[in-house]
Each structure stands twice: as C-alpha cells, then as structure tokens.
C-alpha cells in the first residue's frame, strides 16, 4: 500500500468536495500517513480465501409493494431551505 502524500491529500480532498489550503494539506498528509501506515497491519493476514462481510446479519433484499403514497407537504419540505422563491429552492448564481 502506498503512503499518503500531500499531493494525494489535495486530490482526495477535491474528490470529496473539500476545499483545503496548502498548509492544511500538509498537516492532514502527516496525520493520514500515520493512519494509513497503521492500516498496513492488515497486510500480515492472508485473506485470499476469505469472503468479505458487508452486513453482519443474514438478510436478503427488503422489498415493499410498489404502491404510490402521498409525499410530504411542500411547506414542510421547504422548512429548512435557506432561500426560496415561489416554492422553489433558490441557489446562488454559479455560472460565470
């Protein structure tokens, strides 16, 4: 496994939609390098023939009847919207 460099931190932060400064990237790189180094411990184990566990209980897909039900009233849904106009969510101008 590779160590986490400052450049990788910047790349990962971008993928995760986090803005970070150069200084922060350096700090996070140090910490994440220590953390990913500790994770290397797992390489001691031979897991070639081990099935991965995604869920601890034996459970199949849970399906419900495909039946339309009324949604929440609009005013309730809009309750936590910061800016709105005519019952719509308003967002800042994002096109240059």
């Amino acid at each position: 496994m590779a160590k986490m460099t400052k450049e990788e931190v910047i790349e990962v932060a971008h993928l995760a939609r986090l803005a970070i400064t150069d200084e922060e990237a350096e700090h996070f790189a140090e910490q994440l390098e220590a953390i990913t180094n500790a994770m290397e411990l797992l390489n001691e184990l031979d897991t070639e023939n081990v099935e991965p566990t995604t869920h601890v209980l034996e459970m199949a897909n849970v399906l419900r009847e495909d039946k339309a039900e009324p949604g929440l009233p609009r005013e309730l849904v809009m309750k936590n919207v910061k800016e709105q106009e005519a019952g719509q969510v308003k967002v800042p101008t994002i096109l240059d």
Partner: peptide
C-alpha cells in the same frame, strides 16, 4: 481487505 478481515 478490511471487509475480509471483518469476517475473520
């Protein structure tokens, strides 16, 4: 890898 170790 972590999911496999989880099994163990």
């Amino acid at each position: 890898k972590a999911q496999k170790v989880r099994t163990l």
